[in-house]
Design a protein around this nucleic acid. Structure first.
Lengths: 154, 154
DNA sequence: GAAATATTGATAGGTAGCAAACGAATTGTC
DNA sequence: GACAATTCGTTTGCTACCTATCAATATTTC
């Protein structure tokens, strides 16, 4: 009903993807808000808690965000005392990230927002359709990224 | 290839949706950058150029964003002289938005980024699979939004 | 070894989104 | 008519993303 009221004509999978992304962000944010954590901050803690100390440079690749973005997120976590950031002894440019004692303590209290979102969004859904949806999105994303690369060359 | 390098384990449709959203935003931004326009600014201009003067209140519903967000976007467009914002004579709380002469002039020069994205992303794709993907995303979004509503009540 | 180049992280400035709080204007209720 | 509730837009403060640029450090090239 609320979805059907007159919308802009220009409506595409991009727009559906946007809505799903923001809906899942909203759920994640509401779960994490009591702990005063943003979603990207949670991903960083997840990595450091489960995989151990990680180079900031590598996290950029894993999270697929820009260095500048991660720089800000890390600064926030360091300010909160949840993460420790130290220059690497081999390469002074790189920074090794490590979860602090306070960070680990908080991590233990945290619910898993991803599990919650998966259940809320897809519980009972047809796996075959999910697979198709996943593939359509992946292909489209890949094509768009290639399009961007081509544009850069020109 | 670049997609397959070790990622965080927590990977879900939410993450695919995010990647597609950001890929399409990246294309849209790169198209609009020469004109110094953001994607949401483009949507506002689109509405005003094609459908005529619109109440700011209605645009909130059409774009499905918060009043506060639109407020900022409109302020930017007004500052650039592309849009005119005037109180409605009937209801002094509401603001009528109208494209200016300069706005219309710019609009005529603008390429259609949505068309470009649709082609780049989905040209040649199977319509049946697209329909399934669309439905999966819509259902998931709806379920997440309901989940948020329930959480609010509790 | 010195100069050019590449990499890493930080910073500045921009867009886009949200929530919360506020003022002004309108509508509803008594 | 007066008071309460609602609606609309703005402002503030936050997260998260981008580009462009800079400083520091490594690496490559000559």
């Amino acid at each position: 009903m609320a979805d059907r009221q007159k919308n802009l004509k220009h409506d595409s999978v991009g727009a559906w993807a946007k809505r799903l992304y923001f809906a899942s962000r909203a759920v994640m944010d509401s779960v994490l808000r009591p702990y005063d954590l943003g979603s990207t901050q949670w991903y960083v803690l997840y990595q450091l808690a489960n995989e151990g100390p990680t180079m900031q440079r590598d996290l950029v690749r894993m999270l697929q965000i820009e260095r500048a973005t991660l720089s800000g997120v890390v600064a926030t976590l360091v300010r909160k005392g949840l993460v420790d950031q130290a220059p690497d002894s081999d390469d002074q440019r790189q920074r090794m990230l490590r979860i602090t004692r306070a960070g680990r303590k908080l991590w233990k209290e945290l619910p898993d927002p991803i599990e919650l979102i998966l259940t809320a969004a897809f519980d009972g859904a047809d796996p075959a359709e999910l697979a198709i949806a996943r593939r359509v999105l992946q292909v489209a994303t890949q094509r768009l990224n290639q399009h961007i690369l081509k544009g850069d060359q020109a």
